[in-house]
Structures are given as structure tokens and as C-alpha cells.
């Protein structure tokens, strides 16, 4: 039995390897086309507002929150002060914060790995202070939010060019579409095929535009959190064991996930229920 599983798994891995000849742009067009077909009246640019592009009911509340002082404003200001205090501008990769947000995530050919904005922030923090920074909330989320604010209005523009990048993209795509956990569901089962439908008290957000406002503020958390914090929460909802934030698997998935939002505006409207 074990032998059989091993055999089947290796065939699966081989299949995975061939799909590494990934065409991100063709994937993205099909992805956008899918959302256009399920919600023809929603404009592409509106996907930057995440679930509020679909959820007319709570959009008013969302806009009211943005018109006032959003609950994360203080945290983002603190992130600015922390960026300064820890000397993060001394790291070349963060010296121009707006450019840093637009550049990440990217595939580093020399290192052979996907580099996320949070990964770069944590590395720089470690270089400047000798200390370690957590990957999901607190400092990393505040600083990442402030950096991302500097790029508000610019567009998500993930590049998948080298063979290594294509392989990482293909792995991330598979992670997104694979069924996992006790409910035997994939990310796409909720955020692609059933986007806009209700799951208990929530309207399921479209994966298109999922990464324009990261790190996000969530009323349920009462704080900012990174994209990988959210990945962990959704894994748990699927009754799958979450992976570590900033694990290679999550970074690959982010590479795919962000690429699918290419062309959408980065926004500082971080509020979500």
C-alpha cells in the first residue's frame, strides 16, 4: 500500500514538474475572466476593494470607516516610527519604501527562493538590531502596512520570469488549488468558484484583489495581520494544519496569489470585518 502511494505521489510530483512551464499571464487572464463571468457588473478596478466589491450591504459601513479615522491608523503611524527607530531605511532593499512594496514578492534567482516584503523587513530588522521579529502581527504587520501605504495607488506587478520563478509560481498555484484538510476543500472552492456567496455570516471574498490591502486590519483580530496570518486562519477553517508563516510553501503561494492581482491598485484601505 505504502509502495503504491509512494509511486502515485512520485507520478504526481513529475506532473507538477512539467507544469512548471507556467504561463502566469495566461493564467491571470483566465482568472480575471472567471470573475467577470460570475459577476459581470463588477469593474476590474473595483476588485482592489476586496469583498466590498461584491458586498453592497456592508460597503456603506466600509466607506464610513474609511471616511473617519480607521481603527488601524495609529498602528500604521507606529509602524512609521518603528521603521525610523530600527534604521530600516539603511537596508538597500527598503530605502525606497514605495518601490519595495511594488517589487515584492519576487523570485531571488541567486537564493533560489521567493522573497516577500515581510521576509525583507525581518531580515533588515535582524541586521540592524541583532534581534528577531515575529512573522504574523505586531511590528512586522505595522511596518509592512506603513511601507505599503507609500505605494498606495501604484499597481500590483509581480514578475514571473526565470525558470526558478516559474517553478515557484507553479508550486504556489498548486498549493492554492489543492484540496486539503478534513473538509477536502481548496482555497479556490471558497474564494474562486464560490466568491460572492454566503458562508455562515460572511460573504466569500474573491481571490482577485486579495492582496491589494495587505497587511489587513481585521475587526475580529482587533489588529493588523500579515497575509500569512490569514493563510493560517483559512487553513484552520479547512481543518488543515497551518504551515509556518513565511514558510517556503506560503511564500510560493503568495507569489502566485499576488500575481493573480497584477494590474490592481495597491490600497491603504485595510479594513475588513
Amino acid at each position: 500500500m505504502k509502495k503504491l502511494i509512494t509511486a502515485v505521489v512520485s507520478i504526481g510530483l513529475m506532473a507538477g514538474a512539467t507544469s512548471a512551464i507556467a504561463d502566469m499571464e495566461a493564467d491571470r487572464k483566465a482568472f480575471v475572466g472567471h470573475f467577470k463571468s460570475i459577476q459581470p457588473s463588477v469593474e476590474f478596478a473595483d476588485y482592489t476593494n476586496g469583498v466590498y466589491a461584491y458586498d453592497e450591504g456592508s460597503r456603506g459601513q466600509f466607506e464610513e470607516i474609511l471616511d473617519g479615522i480607521p481603527p488601524y491608523e495609529e498602528a500604521v503611524e507606529k509602524g512609521a516610527a518603528e521603521f525610523e527607530k530600527f534604521g530600516l531605511a539603511k537596508c538597500a532593499a527598503l530605502a525606497d519604501p514605495a518601490a519595495a512594496r511594488v517589487k515584492h514578492p519576487y523570485y531571488d534567482d541567486a537564493a533560489g527562493t521567493v522573497v516577500t516584503l515581510e521576509g525583507t523587513i525581518r531580515k533588515c530588522y535582524n541586521e540592524q538590531t541583532g534581534k528577531k521579529m515575529g512573522p504574523m502581527k505586531g511590528k512586522v504587520a505595522r511596518i509592512s502596512a506603513w511601507i505599503s501605504d507609500q505605494a498606495a495607488g501604484e499597481k500590483v506587478n509581480v514578475k514571473v520570469e526565470s525558470d526558478g520563478a516559474k517553478a515557484a509560481y507553479a508550486r504556489g498555484k498548486a498549493t492554492f488549488y489543492a484540496k486539503r484538510g478534513q473538509f477536502n476543500m481548496s482555497c479556490a472552492d471558497c474564494h474562486v468558484y464560490n466568491a460572492g456567496k454566503k458562508a455562515r455570516a460572511d460573504i466569500l471574498s474573491p481571490a482577485l484583489g486579495h492582496t491589494t490591502h495587505v497587511p489587513m486590519y481585521r475587526a475580529k483580530w482587533g489588529s493588523l495581520g500579515t497575509l500569512h496570518r490569514r493563510y493560517g486562519g483559512c487553513y484552520k477553517n479547512m481543518r488543515a494544519k497551518p504551515l509556518m508563516a513565511q514558510s517556503p510553501e506560503y511564500r510560493d503561494m503568495e507569489f502566485f496569489h499576488q500575481a493573480m492581482s497584477n494590474g490592481l491598485e495597491i490600497t491603504d484601505a485595510r479594513y475588513r470585518k
Binding site: 507544469s19 498555484k173 498548486a174 489543492a178 478534513q182
Partner: peptide, 20 residues
């Protein structure tokens, strides 16, 4: 039983893709 079902999901997981 859970681990057997998870192993079953693992088969093909690395080449999963969209339905469109």
C-alpha cells in the same frame, strides 16, 4: 484514518489547477 485520507489528498496535490 485521517492520515490515510490526507495521503490520498497528497496524490496529485502538487499539480492541482483551476477548473477553467
Amino acid at each position: 484514518t485521517q492520515t490515510v485520507n490526507a495521503a490520498e489528498q497528497t496524490v496529485g496535490a502538487s499539480s492541482a489547477g483551476p477548473r477553467f
